[in-house]
């Protein structure tokens, strides 16, 4: 393997960090026309944002058509691409559901390390600021000190927490929390669950049990099952969404860590294939950094202009 190849690669990756706008500029070049080479450059840029081959090719096809039909030139490309992406996610917006009769039970699920615990805290903070009464449930009884982590957050937010001893049955935590939520007239019960890889059948079955038990403690629960997806996730994010939706009927997504260099392009495929809405986007480490998902802002950020 020649050093020249490595060197080229490294230099190239440096450029990739400048975002899609830079990529577009270099792809279009000085000729200001959308030729095959320019389109290929754009496709690469989309691939680099985890948009995936299928969606990237579809988006490029739209640009190609536009270029032929409307004489779209280089200056029009970024705005056109942004609109195309935002348009695809327009139907993905909806607010958090509320149960007809409180409490609304929300289950946060996902693979390890996507930010479920932090999202639970941020969501609690958000709802509390709106005047809702919120109860947190530490149903991650597996990861060492997960309950402690959530306890710290509960303290900062100023909401109550239901927790059991480590290694306990997470479904029992859910049951107790939902029961407590009803008894204490809470508006929301937010259940943080342990991270699990979707290819572990036994852990997915454990999650199913949690949803069953929630339904037993409160008819209709869980009202929301939110899959927490890390913006840095690659193509496996689609597989995560598929399997979690199959096993526990995911009702929506939370896209976390959008404040990073990762672009979260995977949600395009997830929404296209599964039609799941994206309820929130995590954009920072502070309690206030959970925002309702905004397709326009997302598309702009994906193109490196956010």
């Amino acid at each position: 393997m020649g050093q020249g190849w490595m060197g080229r690669l490294r230099a190239g990756l440096g450029r990739a960090r400048e975002g899609l706008l830079g990529a577009i500029a270099s792809a279009v070049g000085t000729r200001r026309v959308l030729d095959a080479a320019a389109l290929e450059g754009l496709e690469d840029a989309l691939l680099g944002a985890d948009v995936g081959v299928l969606d990237a090719e579809a988006l490029i096809e739209r640009l190609r058509e536009a270029a032929a039909r409307e004489r779209l030139d280089a200056d029009g490309v970024p705005e056109r691409l942004r609109l195309e992406i935002a348009e695809r996610l327009r139907g993905a917006v909806r607010p958090l559901r509320r149960a007809g009769e409180p409490p609304t039970v929300v289950l946060l699920v996902g693979v390890n390390g996507t930010g479920k615990t932090t999202t639970a805290a941020k969501l609690a903070h958000r709802l509390k600021a709106d005047g809702d009464r919120v109860l947190l449930a530490a149903a991650d009884t597996f990861r060492a000190a997960a309950a402690e982590q959530l306890a710290v957050w509960a303290g900062r937010v100023g909401v109550d927490l239901v927790r059991h001893a480590p290694g306990g049955d997470p479904a029992a935590v859910v049951f107790d929390a939902v029961a407590a939520g009803r008894a204490r007239a809470m508006d929301f019960v937010l259940c943080d669950t342990a991270g699990r890889l979707q290819n572990k059948a036994n852990l997915m079955a454990e999650l199913q049990k949690m949803t069953r038990v929630a339904g037993r403690a409160c008819p209709g629960a869980p009202h929301e099952v939110l899959l927490v997806l890390d913006a840095g996730t690659g193509r496996n994010g689609l597989q995560q969404a598929r399997v979690f939706t199959e096993t526990v009927a995911v009702t929506g997504l939370v896209l976390t860590k959008l404040d990073t260099t990762a672009r979260g392009g995977i949600v395009l495929a997830v929404h296209r294939e599964l039609g799941l809405p994206i309820l929130y986007a995590g954009v920072g480490e502070g309690l206030d950094d959970l925002r309702p998902f905004d397709p326009d802002a997302f598309a702009a950020a994906l193109l490196g202009a956010g």
Partner: peptide, 11 residues
């Protein structure tokens, strides 16, 4: 599980 950004992170 990381996607394309892994390269940027490593770098």
């Amino acid at each position: 599980l990381a996607g394309q950004d892994a390269a940027n992170v490593a770098r």
